[in-house]
Amino acid sequence: MSTPTTTAPAPALSIGRFDLDSPVVLAPMAGVTNVAFRTLCREQERERMGSVAGLYVCEMVTARALVERNPKTMHMTTFAADEDPRSLQLYTTDPEYTYRAARMIAEEDLADHIDMNFGCPVPKVTRRGGGSALPFKRRLYASIVRAAVRAVSDAGHPEIPVTVKFRVGIDDDHHTHLDAGRIAADEGAAAVACHGRTAAQRYSGTADWEQIARLVDHM
């Protein structure tokens, strides 16, 4: 008589070593997704679903300010006791500060997951070559992703996944998402996320899901 075997359901979303039961990710937004807001969202999910299964990403933290231990920035890295995994989004335009910040996060156990911000469309950010403008500079973009992946490994914590968020491109004439996805994977990123708008669109109009599908096929 054979004993029936049961197969555990596949996780809805896997990022590095983390298997999540929900594919829903709370998108990071500066000035919004702080520890209080994330706590409220988690309470809502627990109340409605009975558990917390998604990924909750903290608001954007600037790499240089983190390395220099700016008090406001350090406060932004606060996580609630029950947040697991602790997901921190890092904004950066410089490979050196990227490396130092990512290594600091790993060595000081500040987070379990690092998400790189290449999606911010705010003009004061993109005018400086950061956010959604940065993937257009492919070599710089590659070196920044590489620096973050190398930093967590050098810190003795290669299990900390580094992920990358970007947009379709700068505008309709300058799409960068296919190159951005390929480069991130080549440099060791555990996953990528694409906002289906260009930087020029900011948050207007509708997301271009066809471009996201193209990225999935390309990856």
Rank of each mutant, 00 (worst) to 15 (best):
E187G: 10
R146Q: 15
V57P: 00
V25A: 05
E45T: 06
Y56K: 02
A155W: 11
C194W: 03
D179W: 05
A27T: 09
R64W: 10
D208E: 14
A147I: 03
V57G: 00
R42F: 08
I15D: 01
K165L: 07
P28I: 01
Q44F: 11
M49A: 15
C194L: 15
Y203M: 02
T73P: 01
M49P: 00
E108P: 02
H177I: 09
S2M: 09
D217Q: 14
V164F: 03
I15N: 02
G31N: 06
R202Q: 12
V216D: 12
A147P: 03
R182F: 03
H218E: 14
A193I: 05
A207V: 15
V35L: 02
A53P: 03
E210A: 14
Y99M: 04
D19Y: 00
R103F: 06
S153R: 15
C194Y: 03
Q201T: 07
T73S: 05
R17A: 13
S22P: 07
A142Q: 02
A53W: 01
G131I: 03
E47Y: 09
R69Q: 14
M116Y: 10
A106D: 09
S87V: 06
D94A: 05
S22H: 07
L178F: 05
A189I: 05
A184F: 00
G129D: 11
D171W: 13
K72D: 14
S143E: 15
T93F: 07
W209G: 07
D109N: 15
T98I: 09
I144C: 08
I105K: 07
V57C: 02
R46V: 04
A148H: 01
N70G: 06
A151L: 06
G188H: 05
P158L: 09
M219E: 09
V32D: 08
N117Y: 02
G50A: 07
P158S: 12
A53C: 06
E159M: 04
R103K: 15
D115K: 09
D171H: 12
G119L: 04
A8K: 14
L40S: 10
I160S: 07
Y91S: 14
H195I: 09
L20T: 01
A10L: 14
V122M: 06
D21G: 15
S87L: 00
T206Y: 08
P85G: 07
E108W: 05
T78P: 00
K72N: 13
R150D: 15
P123R: 14
R139M: 11
A63Y: 12
L140Y: 04
A193C: 15
R202N: 11
A65R: 04
D171P: 12
A133N: 04
D94R: 00
Y203K: 00
M1V: 06
M49R: 14
V149K: 07
N117V: 06
Q44E: 13
D173W: 04
V145W: 01
M74C: 12
R214W: 11
V125C: 04
L215M: 15
E96P: 00
L215S: 15
G54Y: 03
V125F: 06
H174C: 11
V149S: 08
Y56F: 13
Q201N: 13
P121Y: 08
A184H: 01
F37V: 03
V162W: 01
V145L: 02
Y141I: 11
P71I: 00
R127D: 12
A101N: 12
A101M: 12
I15H: 01
A142P: 00
A189G: 05
